[in-house]
Computed example of a mutant assay.
Amino acid sequence: MIPQSWRLLTHCCDRHDHHLVLGYGTSRLRLCLRHNSGREAPCIVVGQDDLLAVRLHAASRYVRATGRKAGVTPSVGPTDYQRAHLVRLLAIADAIVLGASARDIAFAIVFPRHGPLAGPVWKGSGERRHTLRLIRQARQLTEGGHVSLLRHG
């Protein structure tokens, strides 16, 4: 749907693409629209070449002109929960490097609002098991697991 303030200057269609040139005053916006391939929401693909800045500017103008909200799709970046979990794992990894014990990590990072558990209560607690699981994940993350964060799809 073309915004009312823009006018269609020319267009061309082939089997897979629909090319449009839109005008708004002296501004021109050239679009290549492709079949959505089953995606739920439209996406903008920007080629990374010498004209990247121009392409990004045109993409942002398109987003503003159509009134759509730009954002990161879930497949590109972590959710808020995943981001908080990764931040916690990095804090745990830092504490490990500084020599903190599992109990220190548990009550400073993982369960900061709980009072420390003592002796046998700590040994058999769910808090200890959960903390040890997070420590294991933090170690995996720092020992090469961070590469998996770069893969998405």
Results as ranks from 00 to 15, higher is better:
residue 33 L to T: 07
residue 38 G to T: 08
residue 40 E to S: 10
residue 41 A to Y: 09
residue 44 I to Y: 00
residue 45 V to D: 09
residue 50 D to N: 10
residue 56 L to T: 04
residue 59 A to V: 06
residue 59 A to K: 05
residue 64 R to H: 11
residue 65 A to N: 03
residue 67 G to P: 01
residue 68 R to L: 13
residue 72 V to P: 09
residue 73 T to R: 12
residue 74 P to M: 03
residue 75 S to H: 07
residue 77 G to M: 10
residue 77 G to Y: 04
residue 78 P to K: 02
residue 78 P to N: 02
residue 79 T to S: 15
residue 80 D to Q: 14
residue 81 Y to T: 14
residue 82 Q to A: 13
residue 83 R to S: 06
residue 87 V to T: 14
residue 89 L to G: 09
residue 89 L to H: 08
residue 93 A to W: 10
residue 93 A to Y: 12
residue 97 V to Q: 12
residue 97 V to Y: 08
residue 97 V to T: 08
residue 99 G to Y: 07
residue 101 S to A: 12
residue 104 D to P: 00
residue 104 D to F: 01
residue 104 D to T: 10
residue 106 A to K: 03
residue 107 F to E: 02
residue 109 I to Y: 03
residue 109 I to R: 03
residue 113 R to A: 15
residue 115 G to F: 04
residue 118 A to L: 13
residue 120 P to C: 03
residue 122 W to L: 02
residue 122 W to I: 03
residue 123 K to L: 12
residue 123 K to P: 00
residue 125 S to Y: 10
residue 125 S to I: 10
residue 128 R to M: 09
residue 129 R to S: 15
residue 129 R to A: 15
residue 136 R to V: 01
residue 137 Q to G: 00
residue 142 T to R: 15
residue 144 G to E: 08
residue 146 H to L: 04
residue 148 S to N: 15
residue 150 L to Q: 12
residue 150 L to W: 06
residue 152 H to E: 03
